[in-house]
């Protein structure tokens, strides 16, 4: 199984790998979700959705289906 933001556990840190999926909105990239940047899962709402993240210093919440498209490497 691929490691994505959706598979992170709370408090886990990871580095974003290549962004390939076209579903990922440009807005998310513009908010700092870019290859090589660090992402931390801060909190999830019940049923793991939405997910509250710190990406590259920006605090954001995104829905799980988008999070599942972003491949990461746990550090």
């Amino acid at each position: 199984m691929k490691t994505t933001i959706a598979t992170l556990r709370r408090g886990q840190r990871a580095l974003i790998k290549e962004i390939t999926s076209e579903i990922i909105p440009l807005k998310l990239l513009e908010m700092g979700c870019l290859p090589g940047n660090e992402v931390v899962l801060i909190q999830t709402a019940p049923f793991q959705c939405p997910m509250y993240l710190n990406i590259n210093g920006s605090h954001l919440a995104i829905r799980k289906e988008i999070a599942a498209q972003i491949e990461v490497q746990i550090i």
Partner: peptide
Amino acid sequence: SYFIVEMPG
């Protein structure tokens, strides 16, 4: 429009 919510301080 996508669901991306900034969580401000």
